[in-house]
Write a protein that binds this DNA or RNA. Structure first.
Length: 153
DNA sequence: GCCAACGTTGGC
DNA sequence: GCCAACGTTGGC
């Protein structure tokens, strides 16, 4: 099988905070409507590690860990007419959007704010810093380890 | 709430 | 295939 990969996924605390994933244990990561983000989710395998990031928060930053619990499946919200994620151009035969299921792992003792990420040279080339609008992005093992170490010590 | 950056849509 | 118009993201 393939190696474990590392990712960062964003969520707004007003919409879906980490605490809610903790309560629900698992959740479909639905509602992503960006092709690049979708393509990354299609690359994910069960067991891949996820940095959970709170965007539009005060302050924004990495707050915890999740992990992929199911490979990508068609996002059910794209077919629901009354959903804000409904996509009229998507069909059951040819769904446009997919999403993975993620499982709660932990909430960090110390979050790592975006400010701190920007200050750390070793994290300077993260998409988070220079591709700020990408909501699902790959993270190198090195970066992942640096962040986890910072947040747990 | 503002606005810069960026992605998508649709007319041509 | 270009590009203007428009919509969204997300930091501040």
């Amino acid at each position: 099988m393939s190696e474990i990969k590392y990712w960062l996924m964003k969520s707004e605390p007003d919409t879906y905070p980490l605490e809610q994933l903790k309560k629900e244990k698992k959740s479909l990561w639905d509602g992503v409507r960006n092709y690049q983000a979708r393509n990354f989710m299609k690359e994910m395998n069960v067991g891949d590690q996820i940095l959970f990031y709170h965007s539009n928060a005060k302050p924004p930053g990495v707050v915890g860990l999740a992990q992929v619990s199911k490979k990508a499946v068609p996002d059910p919200t794209q077919f629901k007419k009354n959903s804000k994620y409904f996509d009229p151009k998507s069909t059951q035969e040819k769904p446009r959007w997919e999403c993975v299921e993620v499982k709660y792992k932990k909430t960090f003792k110390n979050m790592l704010s975006l400010n701190e990420v920007k200050e750390m040279k070793s994290l300077a080339d993260m998409p988070l810093v220079n591709r700020s609008r990408l909501s699902v992005q790959p993270v190198s093992k090195k970066q992942f380890d640096i962040i986890v170490k910072h947040c747990e010590s």
